[in-house]
Design a binder for these strands. Structure first.
Lengths: 201, 201
DNA sequence: GCGTTCATGTAACCTGTTACATGATTCT
DNA sequence: AGAATCATGTAACAGGTTACATGAACGC
């Protein structure tokens, strides 16, 4: 709790603020709506739920079931709600734009340009797919306008914009880094392995 | 090395592929160009450089200096270059859109809406600032067109698009979540702390 | 018979942050 | 006199991934 935000902790609390859930339910939620923005494995979720319980932000009750394994249902406490509320009052920092592409672009001379182009094509497809999945989700909320419906639509819009921009960008990058385009660039001495001294220009 | 990509390891190798550097130099690079996309503290960089040395992807030489502490210069090896090249051949997954806003939007009923609006205003300013910083950097590269110049411009463009979209989105969210707009939404019973039963509308 | 869904957990490991620790030189 | 820059590291902790481990019910 030293650092300000970043938190699976609060993400789980948000999920529980909707209603009591098992670790398994939370994991499923992460595979759906929330998971568009944040994924977590069940191993992490169970560990985190245990910590939330230590802090008394949630309570748990074991529920016996027939024909299925017993389950442990977690419920947010008043302290938990308060913690969640306080968290939302803190200023939040935008995320870093961490992407392997951006690092590779820093020195295209040192990487496999042909593979880079192939990866661009793969990513173009994947961003297109994600774009349509966001749009579909968005359309399911059409006409619904409770406060959290409006919120969820706004969240999905971030995803839609993000995927749209990546899609456009991938196309543009593919053009600019096509073999033809690259051949026309001004050449610079590539730093190769030792023993090669090539003075160019 | 089990998981496919994600890596400070390779980011440092990219930095060293440009030329030999000390840990301090790498840290400075992270505070400038590369740092637009990925930050790392010196503590992490030194630890990672030690690991790279263990793997023999880099070598180090201590350089004595007068008037300054001695420094340790790291140089990428042929194995290191090969590892970097192989990394660039692997398919890369897009990053998650992890942002506190997106989690809070999932259940606006459970958070402090007034604080949320204030945070939106802060973020609007910060995205505007970042946007202009990316543009400035971009303009510094005008006219330069070696392969990595083109690459760096493409990378900056991702940043420019990202910040532009966030800026637009924050303005839009501020409108949609203004007190007036929220008052017009269909009301849903907010889940409050126990003991409060408020039938509203 | 095989895969999926339900259901919960542990252990080892890697990544990333904060704080601690030191110390000389140069600029204001 | 005090701050910034150069320079390198360690330790503790938090966050996240992968793999291991178990086991019943249900549909194909």
């Amino acid at each position: 709790m030293k650092g300000i935000n970043l938190s699976l902790k609060y993400t789980i609390l948000v999920a529980l603020s909707e209603g009591p859930k098992t670790g398994y339910d939370v994991a499923k939620l992460f595979d759906k709506t929330i998971g568009f923005f944040w994924r977590a494995r069940h191993s992490q979720i169970y560990r985190e739920l245990a910590k939330l319980k230590d802090r008394q932000w949630v309570t748990s009750q074991e529920v016996e079931q027939s024909g299925k394994p017993n389950k442990v249902v977690f419920t947010i406490t008043d302290e938990g709600r308060e913690a969640l509320f306080n968290w939302s009052r803190e200023p939040n920092e935008p995320q870093e734009l961490k992407d392997d592409f951006l690092i590779q672009l820093y020195r295209l001379e040192s990487i496999d340009l042909e593979a880079f182009r192939e990866n661009l094509m793969l990513r173009l497809e994947s961003h297109r797919d994600r774009h349509s999945r966001y749009i579909e989700k968005y359309e399911l909320l059409a006409g619904k306008d409770s406060l959290s419906d409006v919120g969820q639509k706004l969240a999905l819009e971030v995803g839609i914009r993000w995927e749209r921009e990546w899609t456009d960008w991938c196309s543009k990058a593919l053009e600019q880094l096509s073999p033809d385009a690259v051949a026309k660039l001004s050449n610079v001495v590539p730093i190769k392995s030792e023993g090669e001294k090539n003075a160019e220009r």
